[in-house]
Design a protein around this nucleic acid. Sequence first.
DNA 1: AACTCCAGTGGACAATCTGCACAGTGGTTT
DNA 2: AAACCACTGTGCAGATTGTCCACTGGAGTT
Lengths: 177, 177
Amino acid sequence: MIDGLDARILELFTREPRIGVLEASRRLQVARGTVQARLDRLRDTGVIASLAPTVDPAALGFRVTAFASLDIRQGARASVAAHLSRIPEVLEVHTITGQGDLLCRIVARDNDDLQRVIDDLVGDDDIVRTSTLIALSTVVAPRILPLVESAATPPSRSWSTRGITPGESDRNSAVVP
Amino acid sequence: MIDGLDARILELFTREPRIGVLEASRRLQVARGTVQARLDRLRDTGVIASLAPTVDPAALGFRVTAFASLDIRQGARASVAAHLSRIPEVLEVHTITGQGDLLCRIVARDNDDLQRVIDDLVGDDDIVRTSTLIALSTVVAPRILPLVESAATPPSRSWSTRGITPGESDRNSAVVP
DNA sequence: AACTCCAGTGGACAATCTGCACAGTGGTTT
DNA sequence: AAACCACTGTGCAGATTGTCCACTGGAGTT
């Protein structure tokens, strides 16, 4: 899906988001248009899902993160989903295999507040049982770069054979106006 | 921590990241400097944790998401953490309460590939037991705006009393040069 | 009541960047 | 061989950014 240059672009923009296309092209030793085209394609293909700023719930005062596993009544998935999406502290919900039916990522201001959120959570009669795991500390913070690099493995791809290796940028003769 | 204007700024930049400070100030009916100052402060206070592009693992070919709960040997947390951070498919790890000791968010190319990732995962002898939950579907996609809105305390705060209500922007007389 | 503090306003400036276009090059594919 | 495609280097107009400035008005303080 992506090649080494894409990975380097993603890495650069992840580390220094405000860098801009022009400066990025300088750092990567490629033409500005190339970086621009790559970025456009990365957005078009969905690799770059969003350019939205990442908001830290902790900085908003929600210092507790927890994962709640919910057992729900058969066929009530949709209604439970609607219920959950109405709770702001529910950041993410997945259907999962295993004992539980749903796994929610939730936040709260503190442990007492977490109780309130959980009470909100289980306010739906279609939720049969819940089990909550409180995140005590973050061992590996959310990251994506290692995966990006591992996804870029093949040094060359059909739609991008050149521009991978740094230092070959001025091989073309310049266009004389 | 944040007020209504901050929330509206975050919402605007989340929905339309490429909007720019100038256009944002027009939409929000406030002075450009205000938006700029708010954004600076949101970054300084950590509310905006990052401006990095959000990369979608699925678009990189990692279509399977799973959560792995790991029981680890006493006191081996640090070494296990190091082990986990060496695996690119491990996107996030938390220490948790409850039966397991660690909760990992992992991705893989497909179900077979997930087995490989899990094998990598349990390659550490300090990991005693694992239990994996595969995410079958996303019921509520990762989101933050509802929380932002709920965090936006009453219309006024100590360091931001004005500029909340639209339509009052041109109340001040202009500075005549 | 007078005063200070602070966030917001409207404006101005230079410097920079973006979006877009173009022709030429060279590797790959048909 | 011809077509195709990605990349390069370049140019340009328009827009935006970063950073000043002086002033206004509300809130809290002395």
